[in-house]
Design a binder for these strands. Structure first.
Length: 119
DNA sequence: ATTTGCTCAGCTC
DNA sequence: GAGCTGAGCAAAT
């Protein structure tokens, strides 16, 4: 995979096949610490794909044990979907990890920013 | 807070 | 290759 970065805005020239992108997505996700979350949008921005593609990748996650796809939420703080047990289960998992959910939303502080993470 | 329209890669056939 | 779909987004209401 080749990623060219121009003035802060990322432009990716994707010679990568989808499997490569998938793996990249999973690896980034594994950088998200316990008790924090990230969003489909962030991941999409970093990888230079459409957010829905990230969602698709998560849905196809074949190894939920090592890939914490429940930590990926929507950009507005709402939970988004979860194919293994539904959104209720996703919420349960997050609560279990110490993520606080306020009125159906996850507060900003608990959503990591890849800009910072990758420094 | 809710509705509306846009999106685009993956999927299916 | 054409058409459909969606674990989303953003603007307008």
């Amino acid at each position: 995979m080749i990623i060219i970065e121009t003035r802060g805005k990322r432009v990716s020239i994707r010679k990568a096949n989808t499997d490569d992108l998938r793996e990249a997505a999973y690896m980034l996700l594994m950088l998200v610490p316990l008790g924090k979350t990230t969003t489909y949008k962030y991941l999409a921005e970093v990888l230079g794909v459409h957010p829905r593609v990230i969602a698709r990748f998560m849905a196809l996650n074949d190894n939920p044990i090592v890939v914490p796809c429940h930590r990926v939420i929507m950009s507005d703080g709402r939970l988004g979907g979860y194919s293994l047990g539904g959104p209720e289960f996703k919420e349960k998992l997050l609560r279990l990890e110490g993520v606080k959910i306020v009125r159906g939303r996850i507060p900003r502080e608990q959503i990591i920013d890849f800009e910072d993470l990758l420094k």
